[in-house]
């Protein structure tokens, strides 16, 4: 039996979150966890299951399903749900984890950052003023690296200078950035920080900035070096989305990973028209770790049902 206090902490956080969104007239939704398609991002490994003899996936996030609701006219929505990612286990990762995801109609990513700040203020019951720095400025300050100029070789050099025992020459530019971000740049963050304007090569499902093709309208929330949330101005262009999915599958092919059948229902929804909106996912297990000072995600899980 887990610590009762820990169950209460989670329940209280969920109540706070629901009150925050109910006050703002956001509709709570509950989308399916099983689907015949899934995220095609080659860094993410979906858990496979079988239903009536047919292969299905456990959802890695409720993003596609929630955007289908937005396109169908749901208005602003939020959801607290479980998400599943295979091959992710450690002090900060568990293959089954809890997410808060919400979409604010008519918002862009900058307004959404304000809303993230309001939610934290409501959870902490105090004023919070979170410093905001662009991804490019973070790298400039922590590493003296100008990402507007730096090519792959320069990023590899930065990796070699800061990360011990790695064959940096084998890393792509984005792999270097991922490693530098989590192991060097984020180590300079204190308390809550918002990092925004991610490189366009790491746009995921974010819109590219209309006035700067190097950047995507994407942000992340950190507490110290712990990544807590990821949000963006949503990409609403169906053709561009299809192109990104196909690119994912090409990369999967070249890495010898199984390709993922495109989520046609989601693409159809984008073609129908996704209203301009911004959305964000918050890792609730990690937020509990931060709010209650637990160093490991295992300390906040309701039960460990996976064994060791």
């Amino acid at each position: 039996m887990p610590d009762r206090q820990q169950l209460q902490d989670r329940a209280r956080m969920y109540r706070h979150i629901r009150a925050f969104f109910d006050d703002r007239d956001y509709l709570e939704v509950d989308t399916p966890l099983l689907g015949i398609s899934t995220n095609s991002d080659f860094h993410i490994h979906s858990v496979k299951a079988q239903v009536l003899g047919k292969p299905v996936y456990l959802q890695t996030s409720p993003e596609f399903a929630m955007k289908r609701l937005l396109a169908a006219g749901s208005g602003s929505i939020y959801q607290i749900c479980h998400a599943f990612r295979d091959e992710e286990q450690g002090r900060l990762h568990h293959p089954e984890f809890t997410l808060l995801e919400w979409y604010s109609l008519g918002f862009d990513y900058l307004q959404l950052m304000d809303q993230v700040e309001s939610l934290l203020a409501s959870l902490l019951q105090r004023q919070v003023d979170i410093p905001r720095t662009t991804y490019f400025d973070c790298f400039r300050q922590a590493l003296g690296l100008d990402l507007g100029q730096a090519n792959a070789a320069e990023c590899q050099q930065a990796v070699m200078a800061h990360i011990p025992g790695i064959e940096a020459a084998r890393l792509t530019r984005d792999e270097c950035l991922d490693l530098l971000m989590s192991q060097v740049v984020a180590k300079t963050f204190k308390g809550f920080s918002l990092v925004y304007d991610y490189p366009a090569s790491q746009a995921a499902l974010a819109r590219i900035k209309p006035d700067n093709p190097l950047c995507a309208e994407r942000f992340e929330l950190f507490y110290d070096d712990l990544e807590l949330a990821n949000g963006f101005s949503e990409l609403t262009d169906a053709a561009e989305q299809r192109r990104r999915f196909e690119q994912d599958n090409q990369q999967r092919n070249s890495l010898g990973l199984a390709t993922i059948a495109l989520d046609e229902a989601f693409l159809q929804a984008l073609e129908t028209g996704l209203p301009a909106s911004a959305g964000v996912a918050v890792g609730l297990d990690r937020l509990l770790m931060v709010l209650h000072g637990h160093p490991e995600i295992q300390a906040v899980l309701t039960l460990d049902t996976l064994g060791d």
Partner: peptide, 14 residues
């Protein structure tokens, strides 16, 4: 052994 992975991006083991 420490597993390191951003939500979106490459995973590493340090």
């Amino acid at each position: 052994n420490e597993f390191v992975k951003p939500g979106k991006g490459q995973a590493f083991n340090r």
